[in-house]
Nucleic acid binder design. Sequence first.
DNA 1: GTTAATTTGTTCGTATGTATC
DNA 2: TGATACATACGAACAAATTAA
Lengths: 241, 241
Amino acid sequence: MGISMDWEAGLSIWKQIEKQLLADIASGVFAPGDKMPTEMELVRRFGVNRHTVRRAMSALVDANVVRVEQGRGAFVQEQILDYPLGAKTRFSQIVSGRHRLPDKRLISSEVLKASATIAQFLDVKPGTRVVELFSVSEADGIPLAVATSYLPVARFEGIVEIFTQTKSLTEAFKHFGIDDYSRKTTRISAQLPSSRVASLLKQAKNRPVISTESVDVDSAGVPIEYGITAFSSDRVQLIVE
Amino acid sequence: MGISMDWEAGLSIWKQIEKQLLADIASGVFAPGDKMPTEMELVRRFGVNRHTVRRAMSALVDANVVRVEQGRGAFVQEQILDYPLGAKTRFSQIVSGRHRLPDKRLISSEVLKASATIAQFLDVKPGTRVVELFSVSEADGIPLAVATSYLPVARFEGIVEIFTQTKSLTEAFKHFGIDDYSRKTTRISAQLPSSRVASLLKQAKNRPVISTESVDVDSAGVPIEYGITAFSSDRVQLIVE
DNA sequence: GTTAATTTGTTCGTATGTATC
DNA sequence: TGATACATACGAACAAATTAA
């Protein structure tokens, strides 16, 4: 077994293996997010020592082509989306600007009374009725983020239906006469996802998410949305200019 | 055992326990970062059912006073430092502005040849000699971040000694005639720390870090530093305005 | 919840070829 | 030619993390 390679002269074995694996990834044999063969499987396939395989994999990790997780395996690194954090950045614009198909699916919605935190960010009295929107944002069907948004019901009566149709908060806001709004502040932290979030993001529970807390305001500076978003750290990178 | 509480009338038991634990934390019996007693220990101490203890702990988690990690225990939440990401934000200013004592310790330094990535960000030719500074940033002796910085040797000959003395890159830059510099871009992601980074941050390996990649430029727009920083996600939150 | 199996990470040691001084 | 350093390649054992039974 494993006598399939013609060892070229002048190129070290591990570089030839790296080249072959890179070709497999480029040709789609291993797709983004897929699990690569285990080290032992590659050892058998190429008929070399485990160290030699590891050397090749290490090069692929450095090149950011694969990602290795101890005890789980190696995975083809997903294409990372650069997500600029600006006052006017819109999810759909960013994704379609990268020639990928954006989608935002509403998972659940609920009307509840604002907690102290929510009330503070929305600048309303605690107990005020707010609508909670729980949604998943995807690009080409791959989940990038899950978001929990809170909006004051008084101002946005019926927004759930409009959001479900338009699949965009930006579009939904237009129905309420808000043609322009902007991001006020964004707080960024890192967390391990809950089971629910990990499942919705289709990612392992022990892969971290980038968690943001943000407030959007209308042109008059009045808060219209407070949201908590969990971005898959394997698929999204936030950019601050 | 566990008959030490006088159960006040009119206040539910879990609220009394919450109050007591809060007092313990406020008085320093449990310091920030400390491990709280296990649920079973608290059950014995208060002589109540485990659910009652969990109800109290749950309230403390909601109040962001403690943080529970499955399989590890509950920990007193560290005070989270808001770290604004701006063009001119300086670590020492931010920390001292919060009335905490900043410190930046150099762990190691090395002169090496720029990889393709480093060369690209510093806008130099690959192979150019750069100095790598590996440091830990602390506030009141608590590590907040570990940073790896790359600077072109040609322009900053002898910066290691100056940095060791001043414990600040901002100060060190002044010795090279750079009184003003600014952050060009910051890329933000989340990762699990390496063993080394986790150890330097004095945090568990399975707690994520906020990882940033940034380039600083002088007033003429020439890159002077490329850095990768890992912030403890339990102690730091990045803010974008 | 515990145990066992799987998989990657680390560290020894050995040997070989190549480039440099 | 010899000495030395360095990268490559193989082997074995154990540690650490994850997954599955």
